[in-house]
């Protein structure tokens, strides 16, 4: 079985634990195994955009040094934010001489980073393996489910870091949903921002933004939305609680990680997900043909 270095990042060990667990469960079904990096650091969460700030990029560089130390320069992430941050910091390391020199000198206790780590997202790994293989691994085609993929920002932008060749109209997740036997539902808001970390001090605005995303999917008939980002998931899932309070007769929609959808199609046992704010039970029952 192929083994890949795996960088979880902070949130996959807490609120997004289900994203990690389901990914680890389904990987062997597709012929690969994720091996968690030793002593990894937080990636810094967001790539710092100031040309004169170096400090906020150190976590990402340290993590990439951990990758380099394994002897295998490829690393897989599940979190969209980690994916984007590692790539951006690596690009800066390779193009900004001043940054590179300062970082290398500052980290003189570490093995010198060479700027060669290749960060890939789990969805790209699946894409490379091929959706026919995904189809072969399905034991329970999700034929009763209508699923709307949601990409958000950081899997697609900036353009040079997009997981999909067409960042304005991506199709990787659509191909995945199709291979799992579910019906693909298009959502005009699938590449719009969910409001991200604005959720901490400005929850009402985020509720307004995710309303557009959820309703966009609902109008086209979706039962659920899938995402790969722990922050998008938190906003789409938890911020519907605000909509339940302010919108009369609002019907909350369960939000799944894309790996949870894979778990429904590939794993024998019924999942016991505990970190969802909107109960995913109706989706699980539909997948198992119980309603």
């Amino acid at each position: 079985m192929i083994k890949y270095n795996y960088f979880p990042g902070c949130t996959l060990k807490s609120t997004a634990v289900e994203l990690e667990k389901s990914a680890l469960k389904v990987s062997p079904k597709l012929g690969f195994e994720l091996v968690e990096l030793p002593r990894w650091h937080c990636c810094g969460t967001v790539a710092h955009l100031s040309s004169d700030n170096k400090m906020h990029s150190l976590g990402a560089v340290r993590t990439m040094i951990r990758v380099q130390e394994t002897g295998d320069l490829k690393v897989v992430t599940l979190c969209s934010i980690c994916y984007n941050t590692l790539l951006r910091v690596n690009e800066r390391f390779n193009t900004d001489e001043d940054f590179r020199t300062a970082v290398v000198e500052f980290m003189d206790e570490e093995e010198e980073y060479r700027g060669e780590v290749e960060t890939v997202h789990y969805l790209q790994v699946i894409d490379e393996i091929g959706f026919d293989k995904v189809k072969d691994a399905v034991i329970r085609p999700l034929k009763n489910l209508k699923v709307a993929p949601y990409y958000g920002c950081l899997l697609l932008r900036p353009r040079q870091f997009s997981i999909d060749g067409n960042p304005e109209a991506p199709s990787i997740m659509e191909n995945l949903v199709d291979a799992l036997g579910a019906e693909v539902i298009d959502n005009p808001y699938k590449i719009e921002c969910c409001g991200a970390f604005e959720t901490v001090h400005n929850p009402d605005q985020v509720a307004g933004m995710i309303y557009n995303i959820v309703e966009g999917a609902r109008k086209n008939g979706a039962d659920t939305i899938i995402t790969s980002c722990p922050l998008c998931h938190f906003n789409l899932d938890y911020r519907q609680k605000i909509l339940e309070k302010v919108k009369p007769n609002y019907e909350p929609m369960p939000i799944l990680y894309f790996t949870e959808l894979m778990e429904l199609a590939m794993i024998e046992e019924k999942p016991a997900w505990r970190r969802h704010h909107i109960d995913p039970k109706p989706i699980i029952e539909k997948a198992f043909g119980e309603n």
Partner: peptide
Amino acid sequence: DLFNIWEVASTGEFPAVALVASFRKF
């Protein structure tokens, strides 16, 4: 600062990524 981080952080349970990103940006 846009806000007092102690006041804002106590308004709910947030994913680590939301808190770190928000504090770094604002």
